[in-house]
Design a protein around this nucleic acid. Structure first.
Lengths: 344, 344
DNA sequence: CGTTAGCACTCCCAAGCGGTGAGTGCTAAC
DNA sequence: GTTAGCACTCACCGCTTGGGAGTGCTAACG
């Protein structure tokens, strides 16, 4: 049940024309653009068959054809020729990112902005995952009033900081040795289960610290749970409203409402098995609000550890040829820059 | 040229009816709802005069009247009776905020969410302003590879942290004395001009530190410039799309595009002289995209210093009676909680 | 003199109605 | 297998029409 060469060509032309114009494409246009050198009538036969096979849809009789989700899927998997990025664009991107590589938060936000601008879609970026980092240093800064700031720095430039209450018997002078103790015990561990285990060991060894360690553990757990430190950044929501598929405000509203729930966005970006860029098309999404939409997502890493995710969301009628390589490029650039910054 | 009692009553009814229904209100409805006990014809005369005076507008002949911006302004300033918050709502709010008072970022974000949900508008919150805080402690955590994390903690729970490159001749053992030196010199200063001055003094005293101090100054400047650390949080954009005034997508698009520019949002929230809650209505906004919209904004403070701003944005047809006291309450609650947290 | 009933008038809106044109599917010929 | 020809379908556009809401005006009323 494979598609023969001509059908593939027809499907490709239809997808690309529809992506460009947002209007159903008819047999005549396909005949003109496909360079197949056959008449519209022949194309019509092919289109009829493609529709029967589920790759095309007709909004109504006597309108042209529109790709179905299955059609887009086939296009993305088999037909699309990725459009290489312009060298100037590559340079601009690299320069912009390199400038902010120091602070992860800003980097992630900037990335979202750049992606959105370049693709005219909505961009989503979730930053390096805490779990993927290792604690490099622990500091306790006195704040007075029996409080101190517990700062943990991880190797990806993450800073976890929380105000903790000091046990009543505590003297500020004790902070420095305590700092060293914590650094020794927690350094090198990932701020997930590893650190928790280390905290427990320490708890048994020095029971006096119990109140402090308990707080540290609770606060860490809070950072790690969805919606904690790993913030999600969106950019370019206004881009979507420019697309004709969102002329119906209620659709746009449902989509925005969904995207405001950070938990759902995180779910949307959940890592798949694959290595490269993943495309999720229309009905493949579990949420109804996303049914006319596609998501193109990629991962970046820090050294050999998982970093975060970058993604672009737009109507299924999206310029995949441009978007897919762009997302891939941004993900790879981030990996490279972050890995070098960590210096491992 | 004051409005007599009956005109005030008529205007008030029209504003409130229009706010509730989003449809132009006619003389009959005003007669029914105003309890003035006069006929629609009389009301019509009043409405005609109110229109001539600029308080009302007519979308077209033979439609009811709609308040003009001037009409809303008069309503907000003179006619509106603030609707007290339900005690249950007050309690819920207080509990939710108190839970997150520890970390400023989360608190600000939560506030935006709560405001948006309660008012069915878009909420904007800009966090405590760095300039308004005082540095409480400075820490330098070694990161290896000639780098260290410079952490400055301010009294409002702000944490400013940056990776800095250490001068080549530096030994990690020197960090601790340096830390103490910095703490002594910078502690108590506001991270604006004050700290910069202190840095310069230190620079003269210990020229060896120059490369480090230079970095610190540059990074601080970066944090302080708009778009630095004082992040703006938005919540409830989807709420706006539900309003009938945004049935025209292009309008919504223009608005969203404006709100994506953090600089403009910050401008929008810029402090006015007044003490309480400020309402900016329609054409009073400099940006055209905001012409059908109103903003209700209030300030919160930390101790006796400026804190940040909370605001709500919606169509000019907004339930001011509810929104104004709500914004005021949220601002006051934040002030109270943050002031107590700082413990000054 | 303010208030009111009556009434003509305006104008939006929704529904109904051909005309138009794009695009199709079918059929028969090449 | 391909193609020209052709009837058919159906969204879209512009037009008209009827209805209804709400107004402004005028004249009468207390």
């Amino acid at each position: 049940m494979e598609l023969d060469l001509r059908k593939r060509r027809v499907l490709r032309v239809i997808v690309e024309e529809f992506v460009a114009t947002a209007e159903p494409v008819g047999s005549r246009r396909v005949a003109e653009r496909s360079a197949l050198d056959v008449s519209p009538a022949t194309i019509r036969n092919e289109m009829g068959e493609l529709e029967a096979m589920g790759y095309l849809e007709q909004p109504h009789t006597s309108a042209g054809r529109v790709p179905s989700d299955k059609g887009y899927r086939f296009y993305v998997d088999e037909l699309m020729e990725a459009e290489p990025l312009a060298p100037a664009e590559v340079r601009r991107l690299r320069r912009a990112l390199a400038e902010r590589i120091r602070e992860v938060q800003g980097l992630v936000q900037l990335t979202a902005r750049l992606l959105a601008d370049a693709t005219a879609c909505l961009a989503m970026v979730v930053g390096p995952q805490l779990e993927a980092t290792r604690i490099r240093a622990v500091r306790l800064a006195p704040l007075g009033l029996r409080r101190a700031l517990l700062v943990m720095v991880t190797d990806a430039g993450f800073v976890i900081s929380h105000v903790v209450e000091l046990p009543p018997a505590f003297d500020e002078a004790e902070l420095e040795p305590l700092e060293r103790l914590l650094s020794r015990h927690l350094g090198g561990h990932a701020p997930g289960g590893d650190v928790r285990r280390a905290l427990r060991v320490l708890d048994r060894e020095v029971p006096r610290l119990h109140p402090l360690l308990e707080q540290a553990e609770a606060l860490l757990a809070q950072d790690l749970e969805p919606g904690g430190e790993e913030r999600v950044y969106l950019g370019g929501a206004a881009n979507l409203l420019g697309q004709p598929e969102f002329r119906d405000v209620q659709r746009a509203r449902a989509l925005l409402a969904l995207l405001e729930q950070e938990r759902l966005v995180r779910e949307l970006l959940a890592r798949r098995e694959s290595a490269g860029v993943e495309v999720t098309i229309g009905q493949e999404h579990p949420h109804e609000a996303l049914h006319g939409c596609s998501v193109v997502a990629g991962s970046f890493s820090i050294g050999d550890r998982a970093g975060g995710r970058v993604a672009v969301l737009g109507p299924t009628r999206m310029p995949y040829r441009r978007v897919v390589p762009f997302v891939k490029h941004v993900a790879d650039s981030l990996s490279e820059l972050l890995t070098r910054a960590v210096g491992s």
